[in-house]
Computed example of a mutant assay.
Amino acid sequence: MIALERFLPYRLNVLAASVSNALAQIYADRFGLTIPGWRVVATLGQYGVRTGRDVAAHAVMHKSTVSRAVAGLVERGLVRREPNPEDLREDFLALTEAGRAVYEALAPEALAFERKLLAPLTDGERETLFALIARLDRQADVMGAAALREAAE
């Protein structure tokens, strides 16, 4: 029998949703951004020019979700598209001046949210938490790759 309150995949999912929804209030209320829109803005703010495929991989979103978010951000004047001369099927994406201003206003608030969320933990506990998350992420990747290999056989 599975007790959901002790089942790690469930607990991680609930925690991720709770944190994401709380943070979403900041960027939705102040900047009118959706969760996918914020992830696009954050990725482009961090890395500069990227393709939609790059954004999807970095932000762990489906290509179609990124495409819809980008369309809305382009319409709002926050993101610009530039054709990729080496592959006309994809565009390079970058923040506009207005998009950069949104990112620079929102990034400190997101970091403050993170600090407040982590406040109950000691510095050592924070380091341990991030190390454990990295280990679990690598293990999930290994397990996912093994499942794909088994499905292909």
Rank of each mutant, 00 (worst) to 15 (best):
residue 1 M to P: 00
residue 3 A to T: 00
residue 5 E to L: 01
residue 6 R to T: 04
residue 7 F to N: 02
residue 9 P to Y: 08
residue 9 P to Q: 11
residue 9 P to G: 04
residue 10 Y to D: 05
residue 12 L to T: 02
residue 12 L to F: 01
residue 12 L to H: 03
residue 12 L to Y: 03
residue 16 A to H: 03
residue 16 A to P: 00
residue 16 A to W: 05
residue 17 A to Y: 08
residue 19 V to L: 08
residue 19 V to P: 00
residue 21 N to K: 14
residue 21 N to M: 10
residue 23 L to E: 13
residue 23 L to M: 12
residue 23 L to F: 12
residue 24 A to I: 09
residue 26 I to S: 00
residue 28 A to D: 02
residue 28 A to W: 06
residue 30 R to A: 04
residue 30 R to G: 00
residue 30 R to D: 03
residue 30 R to C: 03
residue 30 R to W: 02
residue 32 G to N: 07
residue 33 L to Y: 05
residue 34 T to V: 10
residue 36 P to V: 00
residue 36 P to I: 01
residue 37 G to M: 05
residue 38 W to C: 00
residue 39 R to V: 08
residue 41 V to D: 04
residue 41 V to P: 05
residue 42 A to W: 10
residue 43 T to D: 14
residue 45 G to T: 07
residue 45 G to N: 04
residue 46 Q to N: 13
residue 49 V to F: 15
residue 51 T to E: 14
residue 51 T to N: 10
residue 51 T to P: 12
residue 52 G to K: 10
residue 55 V to R: 04
residue 58 H to R: 08
residue 58 H to L: 11
residue 58 H to F: 10
residue 61 M to K: 02
residue 62 H to A: 14
residue 63 K to I: 12
residue 64 S to L: 02
residue 68 R to H: 06
residue 68 R to C: 08
residue 69 A to Q: 03
residue 69 A to R: 04
residue 72 G to S: 13
residue 74 V to D: 11
residue 75 E to H: 14
residue 75 E to V: 08
residue 76 R to P: 12
residue 77 G to C: 11
residue 77 G to N: 13
residue 77 G to M: 15
residue 78 L to R: 04
residue 79 V to H: 05
residue 79 V to N: 06
residue 80 R to H: 10
residue 81 R to M: 11
residue 81 R to T: 13
residue 82 E to L: 06
residue 83 P to Q: 12
residue 87 D to C: 00
residue 87 D to W: 00
residue 88 L to K: 02
residue 89 R to H: 02
residue 91 D to W: 03
residue 91 D to R: 06
residue 93 L to S: 07
residue 94 A to D: 01
residue 95 L to S: 10
residue 100 R to C: 00
residue 101 A to L: 04
residue 101 A to V: 06
residue 101 A to M: 09
residue 101 A to D: 09
residue 102 V to A: 12
residue 103 Y to D: 02
residue 103 Y to P: 02
residue 104 E to W: 10
residue 104 E to Q: 10
residue 106 L to E: 04
residue 108 P to T: 10
residue 109 E to A: 05
residue 109 E to H: 11
residue 110 A to F: 02
residue 110 A to M: 01
residue 111 L to V: 07
residue 111 L to N: 13
residue 114 E to K: 02
residue 116 K to E: 12
residue 117 L to N: 10
residue 117 L to F: 06
residue 117 L to E: 03
residue 118 L to P: 08
residue 118 L to K: 10
residue 118 L to G: 14
residue 120 P to C: 11
residue 120 P to T: 06
residue 122 T to V: 11
residue 122 T to W: 06
residue 123 D to V: 08
residue 124 G to T: 04
residue 125 E to W: 07
residue 125 E to V: 12
residue 126 R to F: 07
residue 127 E to I: 08
residue 128 T to S: 09
residue 129 L to M: 05
residue 132 L to R: 09
residue 132 L to F: 15
residue 133 I to V: 15
residue 135 R to E: 15
residue 138 R to G: 14
residue 139 Q to V: 05
residue 140 A to N: 13
residue 144 G to F: 14
residue 146 A to L: 15
residue 147 A to S: 15
residue 147 A to V: 09
residue 148 L to W: 13
residue 151 A to D: 12
residue 151 A to H: 11
residue 151 A to Y: 11
residue 151 A to V: 14
